[in-house]
Amino acid sequence: MVDPAVGARRTAPALRETPSTKVAIGGLRAWFGSKQVLSDIDLDLPALRAIAIIGPSGCGKSTLIRTVNRMHELVRGARVEGRVVVDGHDIYAPGVDAVAVRRRIGMVFQKPNPFPTMSVGGNVAAGLRLNGVRDRAVLDAAVEKALRQAALWDEVKDGLDQPGVALSGGQQQRLCIARALAVGPEVLLLDEPCSALDPIATSKIEDLITELKERLTIIMVTHNMQQAARVADYTAFLYLGKLIEFDRTRRIFETPTQELTEKYVTGRFG
């Protein structure tokens, strides 16, 4: 039931040593108004790995990653309880500025959302400009670096002043990844980044995720179990707002300990 290609090129080379924890989620609960969407999530996410969050629609996957950069609370009536500790600092501790948290944790959304009035370069530089970077040379260098990291540089280097929305869907999504990378985040959140893309664009993003996790921790929500199996080192399975199982991806797909997980990954529900 697991894609036979999993063992090949795209899996991480080494998972032997136990990596240090980058994001520690503890007792996390989240609501939309009076509706509880996450209950008591405890999850230690390792550094420099790609972690997939899977589960049927409405299980709270997106909410979970949106609590990691404090985006969840922006929805009217939404609230969060519990801890999300990034590098030893609880981002929900009193006095922590949510804006500052979001500047350190990048996020890419389901549908590519480049700023339509900005050029390719302008989109990538947007985060740096927010941080007050004005120096042309610094911006140019950062734009190139981020676009290279997002595997988009060769395709756009001659058209950096073209509108970002003139790119193809897959390029736009990599542009959004470059925009998130430009500010140098250590954690990158991807909320179903390929759901609006064709298979070729999807495989480019997947390759990119494999490259990027050398440098940063990637937390990715996906609907697509094959995708989780292909790119994620670890997988968390969520069901009805509860964390059912979290383990190395191979274990989740081959020898899950929970019956619910097995049913889901074998396609018997969901």
């Binding site: 950069n69 985006m71 922006l74 804006v99 500052a100 948290v101 979001r102 500047r103 350190r104 990048g106 996020m107 959304f109 549908k111 959302n113 480049p114 700023f115 339509p116 947007a126 985060g127 927010l130 941080n131 959004c176 925009r179 998130a180 500010v183």
Partner: peptide, 10 residues
């Protein structure tokens, strides 16, 4: 999505 793009950048 446009607002979130900016919000996510801080």
């Amino acid at each position: 999505a446009q607002r979130e793009a900016a919000l996510a950048l801080g």
